[in-house]
Amino acid sequence: MNREILLSAKNLTVSYHSITAIQNVSFDIYEGEIVTLIGANGAGKSSTLKAISGLVTYTGNISFRGKELKNIPADIIVAMGIAQVPEGRGIFGNLTVMENLKLSTWQRKDKDKITLDYERVFSLFPRLSERKRQLGGMLSGGEQQMLAVARALMSDAHVLLLDEPSMGLSPVLVRDIFQILREINQAGKTILLVEQNANMSLHIASRGYVLETGRIVLAGTGKELMGNPRIKEAYLGG
């Protein structure tokens, strides 16, 4: 594989005061991949994404298209092309669906393409189109998750970081969301998917990393990891 490395973390360490959340985490994400980072609660998955998005300080390096991201403010990281769908979806309940989408176009100047992107997003999520004028807080959990993904798409990012999109959703909705992620990926977006739901995420991922208590303990292709006895026992329920 001689594809371009898009996003790369080297010896990433994040600590909150004296508590270390992740330690010496390194990974590479290639153009066009879906990479998943799986691990239990508190393994450091969210901290990894927060570091990439510039929400927490860290030691080590993160680079995007060869450019060092350290000390770049979070809003500029979005402008560079990395969007995050945060844990718990992060919908603004006091803003309408349309306003939620509009807000994430903050860094964009390409008016014509924004109009096109609205159409694309609404055809991908027809439910959101029906609820354009409703407040984000009135949506169901599944609709909120769709809005969160739609918002990330509206920022026109090249890389989507998703923090547990399956959380709190019914199995049917989880399948829908993952199907949409696959479509988004096929349409050209690179995805870093953080999940506890190892089964679903390894299924759609080209590669995966397993995070345990802040360290990467295993790495491999989605298939390899699914076949790994240790993964089977700990994450896939035997």
């Binding site: 998005s53 510039g54 929400l55 403010p73 979070a74 809003d75 979005v78 402008a79 969007a83 995050q84 945060p86 992060g90 603004f92 807000l103 994430s104 176009t105 903050w106 860094q107 918002r151 920022s155």
Partner: peptide, 9 residues
Amino acid sequence: TIVPLMGVP
């Protein structure tokens, strides 16, 4: 805490 992720300064 979510607003910066929208690209808003």
